[in-house]
């Protein structure tokens, strides 16, 4: 299976730790990612409220580039937001013939014009679970994360809504109400995954600028639920949740107190750490919420 890798805008900016740790983990387990380096923004939630056609054209150009240049079978992205946009465009092209012909004529004008809604869209978490899985992770552990208590957080668009996540999908999907792929992968590193009620709650990140106080309240609810569950650290598979829960954390703690103070990392950073990769390569010093302190105290870095 040939895979196009679509990092998305965030992974080339503030979430570079996710981009680099994803590549390290993929390489370590023999997943070859061909980076669609001329990618454009997927349009996120803004395009779909602004202009229906654009909300299909933007993601379609990314997939067209992956297919036209690399002849891939699937495009994989580590971002919940990009994943949602790509799946949504795919679903529209398969269900709405007018949308499909609009998009194809756009792609013929500006790109390769080869994409017809016919390649799989995959989230890196799902792909890693299905193609590698907890057993292989367990066997590859060089430094067990034993003693580290992790809250495994998924966010919203990873498994929702089913109307598009189920469209034309060939691989085994996570449980949409009680996702567990990331839990099992993290448990395979030796870490203790705590029971965490807010695993698929919303961090409010979509309104981080438009409605700051509500976004902070939602984020605080997630962070304090993780802390209450006894976690040392929160791991996640989405750069937008990362921005909301990590970069915004100082503001959240200011407004909601120390109950909301907990280090936040990408799940790929913890898997990389268990593989014996260095904190430097995994960019574990990037998060504002300072995971290094707890990792040092557990003797993991």
């Amino acid at each position: 299976m040939k895979l196009g890798y679509f990092p998305g805008c965030s992974l080339k900016g503030m979430a570079r730790a996710y981009d680099e740790s994803t590549k390290i983990v993929a390489e370590g387990f023999g997943i070859e990612l061909m980076e669609v380096d001329d990618f454009n923004c997927c349009g996120a939630l803004e395009a779909k409220g602004s202009n229906e056609k654009l909300s299909y054209m933007l993601p379609a150009r990314v997939m067209d580039s992956a297919k036209g240049r690399f002849h891939v079978d699937a495009v994989v992205t580590p971002c919940n937001g990009c994943y949602h946009s790509l799946l949504r465009a795919n679903a529209a092209m398969n269900e709405d013939s007018a949308a499909k012909s609009d998009v194809i004529s756009f792609l013929k004008d500006v790109g390769y014009g080869t994409y017809e809604g016919d390649i799989d869209v995959r989230h890196f978490l799902e792909l890693f679970y299905n193609e590698v899985g907890p057993e292989k992770v367990k066997n590859a552990v060089k430094k067990s994360l034993k003693g580290l208590k992790v809250a495994s957080y998924y966010g919203c668009l990873y498994e929702r809504p089913k109307t598009i996540t189920k469209t034309g999908y060939k691989s085994k999907r996570d449980d949409s109400e009680n996702p567990y792929f990331q839990d099992e992968l993290l448990a395979a590193t030796g870490a203790e995954v705590v029971k965490f009620e807010a695993a698929a709650s919303c961090c409010g990140g979509a309104h981080a600028l438009q409605d700051e106080s509500l976004a902070a309240t939602l984020s605080a609810a997630v962070l304090s639920a993780a802390k209450k569950a006894g976690a040392d650290i929160l791991a996640l598979p989405c750069p937008l949740c990362g921005a909301a829960l990590d970069i915004k954390q100082p503001e959240i703690v200011k407004a909601h107190g120390n109950d909301a103070k907990i280090p936040v990392v990408y799940f790929t950073q913890l898997i990389g750490l268990a593989m014996g990769k260095s904190a430097k390569d995994l960019k574990l010093t990037d998060p504002i919420s300072n995971p290094m302190e707890i990792l040092k105290s557990k003797g993991l870095v």
Partner: peptide, 26 residues
């Protein structure tokens, strides 16, 4: 509204530059 303002700056940036630069958007 904040909502409209964000949509506008976001879409302008996507259409003009192709990608979102987090600092510029803020």
């Amino acid at each position: 509204t904040n909502d409209e303002a964000f949509d506008e700056v976001f879409m302008d940036e996507v259409i003009n530059d192709g990608r979102i630069d987090e600092v510029k958007i803020v």
